[in-house]
Design a protein around this nucleic acid. Structure first.
Length: 218
DNA sequence: AACCAGGACGTGA
DNA sequence: TCACGTCATGGT
C-alpha cells in the first residue's frame, strides 16, 4: 500500500468516519462535532438529497473561505430564516440585505458578490453538473472552493488539497514545502482509487487531524 | 492582544 | 511567476 493510502487508514482508525459536508437540516444526523449544529452524517453518502441541499453546500463552500465553520453556520442560519438558501432569491435580493445576513462569516462585501455571481451561474446550469474549469472561471471561486463544490455538492472525485494538506504532508516529507495546489491534488488522485467517498473522508479527516494538532508542529 | 479560521483576488516588480 | 496587501468577523 502506498504512503498516501496508508496514512488515510491511520487517520480513519484514529478519528472514524467524518460525515461531511455538514448540512443544516438532516434528520438522524450524528451530532458529534462540538460547537456545531447537527449537520454531519457519518457513513451516509446519500447527501445532498435534493437541489436545496446541493445549493447549500455550494454557498457554504464559498462562505467558509478563510473562515471557521461555526461562523459559516450562523450565516447559513440567517439565510435560511429569510428563505435565501435559494439561487433565485440570492440573485434578486438587495445586496445590503445579503451582506447583513452573511455578516458573521466575515468578508461580507466580497462574499455577497461571490454569492450573487455563483447563484446566477447555478441557475444557468439548469441541473447540469459544472466542470472544474467553469467553476474556476467564476470570480470568487478558486481551486479549493471549486474542488469542494465538485466533491461534496456533486459527488465527483476531485480531491480538495487545502492548506492543512500542504502543512501535514510537507512536514511528513511527502511533498515540497511550497508545492503547488494542483500538484498536491494530483499526488493524491494518482495514489487513490477514484472514489468520491474516499476523497470526502480523506479531506475531512485531514481537517480534523490538523485541528487536533493545531498547537503541535506536526 | 496578536493570531488564526475548511481562500481568493489585485497589484507591482 | 512571486511576494505582498486586502478583505472582516469572532475564537483563543
Amino acid at each position: 500500500m502506498n504512503k498516501i493510502k496508508c496514512f488515510y487508514e491511520k487517520l480513519l482508525e484514529k478519528y472514524g468516519l467524518q460525515g461531511w459536508w455538514p448540512l443544516l437540516d438532516c434528520k438522524g444526523c450524528n451530532p458529534t462535532k462540538t460547537g456545531s449544529i447537527q449537520g454531519y452524517h457519518p457513513g451516509d453518502y446519500s447527501y445532498p438529497k435534493n437541489e436545496n441541499q446541493r445549493f447549500e453546500i455550494c454557498i457554504g463552500a464559498i462562505l467558509t473561505q478563510n473562515t471557521s465553520w461555526p461562523q459559516v453556520e450562523k450565516a447559513l442560519i440567517n439565510l435560511k430564516k429569510i428563505n435565501a438558501i435559494n439561487p433565485e432569491k440570492i440573485k434578486n435580493m438587495e445586496i445590503s440585505e445579503l451582506c447583513h445576513a452573511i455578516k458573521p462569516a466575515g468578508y461580507f462585501n466580497q462574499k455577497a458578490k461571490k454569492l450573487k455571481i455563483f447563484s446566477e451561474f447555478y441557475i444557468n446550469l439548469k441541473g447540469k453538473k459544472p466542470t472544474r474549469d467553469e467553476l474556476l472561471a467564476l470570480w470568487g471561486i478558486g481551486p479549493e472552493t471549486a474542488d469542494s463544490i465538485l466533491l461534496y455538492a456533486y459527488k465527483l472525485p476531485s480531491f480538495v488539497a487545502d492548506a492543512y494538506t500542504r502543512r501535514i504532508f510537507s512536514s511528513m516529507g511527502l511533498i515540497k514545502k511550497y508545492e503547488t495546489y494542483d500538484n498536491i491534488k494530483k499526488l493524491f488522485e494518482d495514489n487513490l482509487e477514484k472514489d468520491f467517498k474516499l476523497y470526502q473522508e480523506y479531506h475531512a479527516l485531514i481537517v480534523e487531524h490538523a485541528k487536533n494538532n493545531k498547537n503541535k508542529k506536526l
